[in-house]
């Protein structure tokens, strides 16, 4: 614990910026009903209001308050992305560590299956499967988690294999330690840093992926507020924008606001990940 504080103290500015961004999003997402001035999907004004009080970021095509939808969107988009990442990570890491540690036929079968899954571009695969399953939230989470777990599998398997070549593993095996002990005590502590970093990267990927699907109208379905979907709904406004007045210029920003919200969180997570990776590579030296 003391160690962690020391590392936090020495964290570079970029890592702090990243952590602040992530914390900001977390607070918004958790306390969404407290911060949002209006309900998530209620029509509260005229269509396409400009940015004036009481709708500080205007209203959308159905007269819903954009600011409120942005705030709820944090909860929905980030929440679903987090759940998906957690599932993908559990699946991938468990199978990856097992494949590396057990080896043999288990490793061969698992690795070949992953090779085939990864041979198809994930977006294409997801579209194919969502055609069949339809676009429910559960289907979305499961499909993306399974597809994404392949990358976690590859990484955790590679990391574990690197660790398993170490002599201390041989020592433990000579002692007759069981599989569970090997993974928990010898492999995991040494794999922690790259796996944490990978969690961050996977989250970014999943988050962007779900946003992309929603943008295509195939992800999180309305009326649930979701950033990708908000970009889609407000996309055509951009052609009405002109820079003659401040009010009309905001039309151009309509799709950029939710898109920017996505971009900012991804940047924040990436900054933190970079720092974690840097720390873990520094420890090796």
């Amino acid at each position: 614990m003391h160690n962690l504080f020391l590392q936090l103290r020495d964290a570079p500015v970029s890592a702090w910026v990243g952590m602040l961004i992530v914390a900001f999003y977390a607070i918004i997402a958790i306390g969404a009903p407290l911060f949002a001035p209006y309900a998530e999907s209620a029509s509260v004004g005229a269509q396409y209001q400009p940015w004036t009080a009481p709708h500080y970021l205007g209203t959308d095509i159905l007269g819903r308050d954009v600011l409120s939808r942005l705030i709820y969107g944090a909860r929905n988009t980030v929440g679903i992305a987090l759940a998906t990442t957690a599932l993908a990570f559990t699946l991938g890491a468990v199978f990856g560590l097992l494949a590396a540690t057990i080896g043999g036929w288990f490793d061969v079968i698992a690795s070949r299956a992953v090779d085939v899954l990864m041979a198809i571009p994930p977006l294409i695969f997801a579209l194919l499967i969502l055609t069949i399953t339809g676009t429910s939230v559960v289907a979305l989470i499961v499909v993306i988690a399974v597809l994404d777990s392949t990358r976690v599998f590859r990484l955790s398997r590679a990391v574990a294999q690197g660790i398993l070549t170490m002599d201390y593993i041989e020592v433990a095996r000579m002692r007759g330690e069981g599989l569970f002990w090997l993974i928990r005590k010898e492999v995991l502590p040494n794999a922690a840093a790259p796996l944490i970093a990978e969690f961050g990267l996977r989250f970014c990927f999943v988050f962007l992926f779900i946003s992309a699907l929603s943008f295509l109208g195939l992800g999180i379905q309305p009326p649930t507020a979701d950033w990708g979907g908000m970009v889609r709904e407000s996309a055509k406004l951009i052609s009405f924008a002109n820079f003659s007045t401040w009010q009309t210029a905001t039309f151009g920003l309509a799709p950029l606001l939710p898109a920017g919200a996505i971009a900012l969180l991804t940047i924040g997570v990436n900054l933190v990940v970079d720092w974690v990776l840097h720390m873990s590579s520094g420890l090796k030296e």
């Binding site: 170490m166 002599d167 201390y168 041989e170 005590k185």
Partner: peptide, 16 residues
């Protein structure tokens, strides 16, 4: 029966 390795560096788990 016990064995001591050549590279003490890799024979000790760095996290223990």
């Amino acid at each position: 029966l016990q064995m001591i390795h050549q590279m003490a560096d890799t024979a000790l788990n760095p996290k223990q």
